[in-house]
């Protein structure tokens, strides 16, 4: 495991743990998701650059486009949630619990 591989794996897992364990705001959860996507972008582009594979280098761009779509859908859901629930706190999302 090279240092770069260690670094982006650690950043991804940190983002995942942040998303999983303690989230007050929906926006913080979305930010953690963005952090995970960022580490994946770094991973894909560094894979391309390290292996000098030119034909693979569009893939980080495509991934960035898709993660932008995901982020915008998340922000739209943030707006929709704050309309219906009045807040973006994740504790307020409790009307479906068992």
């Amino acid at each position: 495991m090279t240092p770069v591989h260690f670094a982006f794996s650690t950043t991804f897992i940190l983002g995942l743990m942040g998303l999983t364990f303690h989230r007050n705001h929906l926006l913080s959860a979305l930010l953690c998701l963005e952090g995970m996507m960022l580490s994946l972008y770094v991973a894909l582009s560094l894979w391309t650059l390290q292996l000098n594979s030119i034909s693979f280098s569009p893939t980080p761009m495509l991934m960035l486009a898709f993660s932008a779509c995901e982020a915008s859908a998340g922000l739209a859901l943030l707006v929709a949630t704050s309309r219906t629930h009045g807040t973006d706190r994740l504790q307020a999302l409790n009307i479906l619990q068992c």
Binding site: L26, L33, M36, L40, L77, I95
Partner: peptide
């Protein structure tokens, strides 16, 4: 809306884990 927010969070996390 709450259901779709929860679905979005889980599915986006799962997709990110798959790509990772």
């Amino acid at each position: 809306v709450e259901a779709s927010t929860k679905y979005f969070l889980t599915q986006a996390t799962a997709a990110a884990m798959i790509l990772f």
